[in-house]
Amino acid sequence: MISTFSLVLVIITGISGIFWGIKQLCTIIYNHNQQKKIFFKKSNDIYQQSKNTYSLAISYCSKTSEFISSLFPILLLVLIIRSFIFEPFRIPSGSMMPTLLIGDFILVKKFVYGIKNPVTQKTLINTGHPKRGDVIVFKYPKNPTLNYIKRVIGEPGDKVIYNIITKQLTIYPDHINNIKYIQPLPITYNNISPSNFIQIFNSDANGKVNSAFIKTKSQENNLNGIRLIQTTESFNGMEHNILTMIPPGDQNLIKIYDQHTKHLISEWLVPIDEYFVMGDNRDNSADSRYWGFVPERNIVGKAIIIWMNIKKQEGTWPISIQMNRIGKIQ
């Protein structure tokens, strides 16, 4: 699995590094010839030879090479930060609502799960592993050119059960190594209430149904759509909010999602070195329930903070910056 952007960045940094090295060599030759000029200033022949040598060397230091070499320290710094420390991402979809909204710009801590080769993504130094509840960015297993962001639900060896009617998870930790494990992980669901998010459905010219999310200022606004339900899910000593389109326990609307009707209660056994992930917008997330597990080698890093949110309605201008979105990711 090769990261094309990282490969290009490494190549550009390497080229600028070569020009930087040439510049340093030119500087050394220049300083050397200046010393020779002083020492042999009484000998015109030797001085002329020294001058010609310098002229030949300085010819390699054109304005173009000077500019390229000046970029090397900046490119090297960007390469180090982006490859091993932090990398920025923009949230393009609503699958992680309400934790992350469309237009959020986040920082991902890369070294928390290991130091990796920036091109091949092979782990060079192991520094840790994802934990349940972590929000991670990873290469989509079915198309590694795409970056996905989801919440870790199941660690390697876990048995994960999801009930679409109650909207609740049941997790048996390390089910593979603890065959007689009886007690599931304590998971609680509180504060079930209507959210400020409404899902609107529209049909395009071909009759395909698309959906969009609208955030209202109050729960009383009536719009032509379905108001999502917000619930506080708690496990691993941390809390986060999730959204569901169908209220927990309501079977009247269950047929909206045909893909779920065959398995109202599904379970998965997470393989070793892989993870089970889900979006916080549980009824509007393409995640491990549909395409499988995330290999550890695909994981880019842990999302830690929202540093900017730029909101732009389709067909409108200008954009607006939502300062209240800036902060730590839960």
Rank of each mutant, 00 (worst) to 15 (best):
N44V: 08
T231S: 00
F276P: 13
Q24I: 09
K109P: 00
P130Y: 11
Y113Q: 14
D134F: 09
N206F: 06
K41M: 06
L146P: 00
H263T: 08
T166Q: 07
S95Y: 07
T99E: 11
L269P: 07
Q199K: 04
A286R: 09
I329T: 02
F5Q: 04
T244S: 10
L243I: 01
V135C: 04
I176K: 08
K23A: 03
G292I: 09
I165P: 06
I161T: 15
Q49T: 06
D134R: 14
T145A: 13
D204S: 12
G315Y: 13
M238S: 12
S195I: 12
F5S: 09
N241H: 06
G154N: 05
C61D: 09
K208Q: 11
F72R: 09
Q183F: 06
H32M: 13
G21L: 12
R151M: 08
H263G: 01
R282F: 01
P92F: 03
I319H: 15
G94R: 05
P184L: 10
S83I: 13
N147S: 14
D250C: 04
L75A: 04
I187F: 10
D283C: 02
V300Y: 05
P318M: 15
N202A: 08
I28A: 14
H240Q: 08
I80P: 01
T244E: 01
I2Q: 13
W20Q: 12
I305K: 03
N222L: 04
D280F: 13
M238N: 12
I58A: 04
V270H: 10
W268R: 10
I329K: 02
I198M: 02
N298G: 12
Q259M: 04
R82S: 13
R282K: 06
R282W: 01
A212M: 00
I125F: 10
I22Q: 01
W20V: 07
N44C: 01
I182H: 12
T53F: 08
Q35P: 00
P156W: 11
S6N: 07
I265F: 03
K150A: 07
S211V: 03
D273H: 12
M323N: 05
T188F: 01
T166D: 05
N196G: 13
K51W: 02
I198K: 00
T27E: 10
R132H: 03
S193F: 00
F84Y: 09
V78E: 13
F235K: 05
I254Y: 04
D258N: 14
